[in-house]
């Protein structure tokens, strides 16, 4: 970590500033974010879909006034998409235009070699480099939050690449030399745990397991996101969602879906969450037919 100092003064400061951006952090989240800042380590956030992993990164960027650079992982992501790539089409054009120019001075072998050297130096220069998210984040001088989203979707080889970049914050480009971070970006990796990430990667990161929030916090979140919703409605909404999560469902409703539900009942103008209201809008939170059937039978909604 260079001399720019730390982004946060203490744990309470993390909480306060995240709250200002609309993200309600609990004790564990705030502490872990604070530690990631202090220890200068990447933060691996793992948890089910829709608990606010990506949201945390976005709010963090807003809270410290940094730019968010996002690397979305997917199957088949490779170095060329994650780190850097040479713009070979442009290089080709450059070579062609060079050979056009040297064509006139043909015969002079020494001149030919010199101009080739010149062209070679030229086409492997900054101008022809396409910087991808990882390199961009490392090279920036301003505060940066690097979000590596859904790391578990990427192939195992990408993890190896990340290891190298995240432990030293430097990238070696053979033709240009080593690029070292002047200012370490704040790195957040997210994962849905569809597969175990490698031990080596986990060892280098701080780990935060985000799970469904407590009832009180979820209510606060819903109210913060859907301010027009009456508090009593939000409370019963959250209680129903928690009851749903306690069932054995294929896909438990996420926070994002609770918020959607709040918006739905608001838009439809329900003023209590009675059986009819729940039954008619259940599709917002439960997206498997079997889950809905189960919820209806366990909450005995079908009775009327």
């Amino acid at each position: 970590m260079s001399l720019q100092g730390y982004a946060f003064a203490d744990v309470a400061d993390v909480r306060e500033r995240l709250r200002e951006t609309g993200y309600l952090a609990d004790e564990a989240i705030a502490t872990t974010v604070f530690l990631a800042d202090r220890l200068g380590k990447p933060l691996l956030v793992e948890g089910p879909a829709g608990v606010g992993k990506t949201e945390l990164a976005k709010s963090l960027a807003a809270a410290v006034g940094a730019e968010l650079i996002r690397l979305q992982c997917y199957e088949g992501l490779d170095e060329a998409r994650a780190l850097y790539e040479w713009n070979y089409k442009k290089q080709l054009l450059r070579i062609q235009s060079a050979s056009g120019a040297t064509g006139e001075a043909a015969g002079d072998a020494a001149a030919g070699t010199a101009s080739w050297q010149q062209t070679h130096d030229d086409i492997f220069s900054e101008e022809f480099l396409l910087s991808r998210p990882l390199l961009t984040a490392i090279r920036r001088d301003d505060p940066t939050v690097l979000l590596i989203d859904e790391t578990d979707k990427a192939d195992v080889e990408v993890e190896g690449l990340l290891l190298e970049v995240l432990s030293d914050f430097q990238v070696t480009i053979p033709e240009l030399g080593t690029v070292k971070a002047t200012r370490r970006p704040f790195v957040i990796l997210t994962s849905n745990a569809t597969r175990e990430l490698s031990e080596a990667l986990k060892r280098r990161c701080l780990y935060l397991n985000l799970d469904y929030p407590s009832a009180a916090r979820e209510k606060e979140i819903v109210l913060a996101r859907v301010p027009e919703l009456p508090e009593k409605m939000a409370e019963s909404l959250v209680r129903i969602v928690r009851a749903l999560r306690a069932m054995e469902l294929k896909k438990a409703p996420s926070i994002a879906e609770t918020i959607d539900w709040g918006q739905t009942v608001l838009a439809l103008g329900f003023d209590t969450m009675d059986d009819a209201a729940v039954t008619s809008t259940l599709g917002v939170v439960l997206k498997h037919a079997s889950d809905q059937a189960r919820a209806i039978s366990q909450l005995k909604l079908g009775a009327n």
Binding site: V11, E27, T32, L35, N209
Partner: peptide, 17 residues
């Protein structure tokens, strides 16, 4: 702060749910 301590240890030493 005991809760913060717990969170700190969890972040550094407990890396699977």
């Amino acid at each position: 702060d005991r809760d913060a301590l717990r969170a700190a240890f969890a972040a550094t030493m407990c890396k699977r749910p």
